[in-house]
Design a protein around this nucleic acid. Structure first.
Lengths: 327, 327
DNA sequence: ATGAAAGCGCTAACAG
DNA sequence: CTGTTAGCGCTTTCAT
């Protein structure tokens, strides 16, 4: 790996001039040419590590997501990436695996690697942003908010829950259950509050056990649906509060030989990779990609020096009542 | 961000001693204690950028994948991550989006960021590893091989194609088509060669158009399946050479009102997030996660200084004839 | 417009 | 065992 010194020597100029050429400063056309020539000959690439040690910052932003295998988060990542790239930033992805320790580890890396900023979708409530915030590195929380004074982008989860439940009600279902995520998680909490609000307001039947808490994955949804079907008075419809749990719920339904439609289904999120068209179901699309774009845009503003008080942007989900699968 | 100098001053020792404490070198218990105390008080974290500039390498490895939204690659990423973490390395993921320019850009970052090494699943044939290879940074190609002298881990794609096609034949199908990936891509090429071999050896019927080339995504598979169904003599079964195209094929089949089973289906790869159980189909599981683990293990060996000639490890896929979906 | 030189924070000789 | 010192490659005053 050639250095500016070697390039400078070959071009017959000083290292400072080489640096200037590579940073768009005023250099005479002649020397510029010489430098470029030498640089090409030596296959010179500026050493980012040195540049960073000097400048205290890099053009890399990090995105911390809890589950890289969840299409919701990968879509979000695409959104972030699109936006970051347009601004000339590179994105690195880190998988926190719902583990606060991993999350903290990656946050430390972000700080000590002097990355320009970080967007994180906190898996747990126990995020420790103390260090990074006090360091002044820009942070944007996405999908969930945090107790720290940082920007956040989230979805109107309550409205999403309300929309989903209302659509089921209007489709004629009256015993509407809810498969929520782990208790105490804000996202899920709000979605199920939306469900509860509608269920309480309309004259629906509500039995014990109609609210199921499950992990956010396929197996969680499957187990929850099984539990619902095993109730004395099973529900006739269910709101699943994320994409993967909906897959699990559909699996349990299929295993029990029950067609969705007979049994109403409302999904918060995108049913990933639908191979087989199920009968109509209610879908509340969550704008994952847009979430990512917005978060990236906010982060870039902060990196650019914007110092206004922390903002929370709330995005609205779109309700598609009893949607047919569009191929 | 505190530096070792500040810690040293507070602890009343030299910077070198602080460094030694943080690198597990021999330091008297007393000074060690003082240093730790001072470090805690100042919330000191060693600056990785400086450490790297000095040591010319970091404990970060990069994984370049063509499509972060493809479950095959995310599973692979998990495999890499598991293995890397065990060895104390952090993983950053970069999405190349099938774009050679992006790929090159990230490779440059890997080099100039002095990352410890890189694993890449090359999207195109045009990977330019020249720079990074001549720099001596360890590189492992995964899923595909490259013309460069680097380690590689791949699947026995030919055998996978043979297994899938044979299983369909043995299930009684006689007009077996193939939905292959983009022409000229090694992975796909080998899989379809496996198909062709079986189709030629057994007395199956082979019409024009039974080989469809499509992009590797859902829409590609859908379009290809539509084309197959529109043939004068449509096939009675199909081998799809990746997971996403299988989803598309199933969608087209469902849209045409044809049940898989009546129409034979063999999938190379994992059908992601199956919500609805299709009738039995042949599945050749591709060991994505294992691929990742193996690649990571090889990379770590190279990082550790192993200098044996480049190896290519070939993993075998597992054929499950007419598998029932296990929930 | 350009060069000389200092220093970002750390580690690894080299002394002691 | 511990301190001093010289860089790693780059950017950026400060002179010229």
């Amino acid at each position: 790996m050639a250095t500016i010194y070697e390039v400078a020597a070959l071009a017959g100029v000083s290292p400072a001039t080489v640096s200037r050429v590579f940073n768009g400063q005023t250099v005479s056309a002649e020397k510029k040419r010489l430098v470029h020539e030498a640089a090409t000959k030596l296959a010179f690439t500026p050493n980012r590590t040195a540049r960073r040690l000097r400048g205290q910052s890099s053009e890399i932003i990090a995105l911390l997501i809890p589950d890289i295998e969840n299409p919701f988060f990968t879509a979000l990542a695409r959104g972030v990436e699109d936006c970051a790239r347009e601004a000339g930033y590179s994105l690195v992805l880190c998988n926190t695996d719902d583990d606060p320790a991993k999350e903290l580890h990656y946050l430390e890396i972000v700080a000590s690697e002097q990355m320009a900023g970080v967007i994180l979708a906190p898996a747990s409530d126990e995020v420790d942003l103390g260090a990074i915030v006090s360091l002044g590195r820009p942070v944007v929380a996405v999908d969930r908010t945090t107790p720290y004074p940082v920007d956040a982008v989230k979805i109107d989860n309550r409205a999403a829950g309300i929309g989903a439940t209302t659509a089921l009600f209007e489709a004629g279902y009256r015993r509407i259950a809810c498969i929520a995520g782990p208790a105490g998680i804000e996202t899920t909490e709000d979605r199920f509050l939306g469900w509860r609000q509608v269920v309480a307001a309309r004259k629906t039947v509500l039995h014990d056990g109609y609210l199921q808490h499950a992990n956010f994955r396929v197996d969680g949804g499957r187990a929850a649906m099984r539990a619902l079907l095993a109730l004395d008075t099973p529900p006739d419809a269910v709101v699943t509060t994320n994409n993967l749990m909906a897959v699990g719920a559909l699996q349990a339904l299929a295993a029990a030989g029950i067609a969705p439609d007979v049994f109403g289904l409302a999904v918060l999120g995108e049913l990933p990779f639908m191979a087989l068209t199920p009968t109509p179901f209610v879908q509340v699309r969550l704008p994952a990609r847009h979430l990512g774009r917005t978060a990236a845009a906010m982060l870039l503003e902060r990196i650019g020096g914007d110092a206004q008080p922390p903002r929370t942007v709330v995005l609205r989900a779109e309700v598609n009542p009893r949607e047919e699968q569009a191929l």
